[in-house]
Write a protein that binds this DNA or RNA. Sequence first.
DNA 1: GTGAAAGCGCTAACAG
DNA 2: CTGTTAGCGCTTTCAC
Lengths: 344, 344
Amino acid sequence: MDSPDLVMAPERGRLKMADIARMAGVSISTVSRALAGNPLIPKALRDQIVEIAQTHGYVVNQSARSLRLRKTDTIGVIIPLAHEAGQTISDPFFLEIVGRLADEITRRDYLVLLNKVITTEPGWLDRIIQSHRADGLLIIGQSTQHEALNSVADTYRPMVVWGATMPGHRYCLAGSDNREGGRLAVSHLIARGRRRIAFLGEVDAPEAVQRFEGYRKGLDEAGVAFDPALVIPSHYTRGDAQRAVEGLLASGVQFDAVFAFSDVLALTALTTLQRAGKRVPEDVAVVGFDDILLAQHSTPPLTTIRVDLEAGARTMVDLLFRRMAGASSPSTISPVELVVRESA
Amino acid sequence: MDSPDLVMAPERGRLKMADIARMAGVSISTVSRALAGNPLIPKALRDQIVEIAQTHGYVVNQSARSLRLRKTDTIGVIIPLAHEAGQTISDPFFLEIVGRLADEITRRDYLVLLNKVITTEPGWLDRIIQSHRADGLLIIGQSTQHEALNSVADTYRPMVVWGATMPGHRYCLAGSDNREGGRLAVSHLIARGRRRIAFLGEVDAPEAVQRFEGYRKGLDEAGVAFDPALVIPSHYTRGDAQRAVEGLLASGVQFDAVFAFSDVLALTALTTLQRAGKRVPEDVAVVGFDDILLAQHSTPPLTTIRVDLEAGARTMVDLLFRRMAGASSPSTISPVELVVRESA
DNA sequence: GTGAAAGCGCTAACAG
DNA sequence: CTGTTAGCGCTTTCAC
């Protein structure tokens, strides 16, 4: 019943190299070489084989290729999440850095394997490395995993971590100057006459610790006393930050400024304060960190510490490819910059 | 020279199942079964083998597993880009939908393979499918690839496309009601007394066509004449949109409102108009489409057509997994909603 | 130049 | 319950 046309239609099923070889009347090896552009095969034959493969929609099976070659042409982008924080990949900061990384990786004809991991499960990193799904790993944020990272760094080279320098880190790190950022933010607030500056954020991950140290340093430099009552712990989610700020307001502790760990937290603080009847910056000034896209568009626009994510992503990918090629590569800390808008 | 401690240190090299088998004194099959939790192997032995694997940091090689099993536990997320548009993954709309999809996919213990493709290269879709890197495909936006999608749909089932319904589409589609969205936007503007409403965007991809049709319909319903001079083509990038709006201003064509294809374009229009001394919404009202996060935070906040991306992503992933399980699944169009803020 | 054959590391049918 | 064995589809050494 089949019409000849249907029989002629390109077979879209599971073709393999052997099928192409049969059609071309050559061996599998020859097809493999031809498809790889190996000059050992005369150009005419090569073109003919490529042509046959193309008309039949044949493409090399990557699982087989990866198994044989021990390479995947894929970069794993790992987002370590603390389970309890309930943070998702949809967080604007992650999204922005992932987007930049994806652009950079794609430009080098590699694929991006996105991987959200719960760091409370021990061995998470080994599991990713040993699964051999990627030729290299980009870790977005150390979270609390400094030790885990250090312990694989000696044996697993193609890995670059975005985060903060820790004493004795042996993994390749890229990041921004968190301590200086914190100092800049607080100095700016103090220059604007603020003295009761709250720190909003969780002081657990190294980046947070360093931003907090910068906060302390800024205070010290100006001779402003540190008040523990002004440290308000909050996870990285909006809900949590809102509760934290409401708690501060309810506590009766006086404050005239908030320096937040991130723009996401700062923006939440902004709206929470405004909803509570505070004027920003008149009653309370707010400074964030990261300079995500949203920061420019809030009302009032957010004063923040700018991290150049585009450059950061490019650096990470550069470092990674250098390591994948066998070279070593130094850790890199890029400078930050105070962007004064209207919230402080 | 090696100290015993070093010799005892867990070997982090390329272990394979055979190594674990040797250590456990069993065959490779037994290890394979034990690691897969196969109840055929007595629990005690199973635990012992898992223990050995764990202490030595052994993890199954996924290339080998995928080759054998013909499955990868990976979902490909494809972002088709028209080459000339210069659009990157860093576009806020893509980022938001990718983030949502990644959350959904991760929740099902699959990995996300991010894939930016240039659709001007013929055979791009076949190439992705036949490379067998993913068990299913999510395509973000039909772009101009309706035919390409249709032609694989009959033979390749596990694929879901985000976009607009096209006559005779045979692939599974999820999307929002673009035509109704366009109509709602224009009706709202007309209700606010606007009559000279410009349409900003490229009318190429089906989604754009339908939004444009809704625009026409809204005009018709109110008996407002359509003026071709008010259609301003613009690619999806900021630079292009800015040039387009500046062109409109320079042309001298009168207009009192802009309905943009997307929020990204609308936000660019907003700032471009303001920089040109126009007040929004007093002089020119602006309505966008998508309701990206930024839309709430612009000054003034953007009136827009809300697409529920979280629900949309969930739907796409649901449909895909149903198809991967062999079931068929219907295309789904979700409703849109007018969100009135202050720009119109 | 080209092909035969080995093997990348794994799973599962089959045999015991 | 456990082991032997045959591939999954590819690349590359080695021999011709």
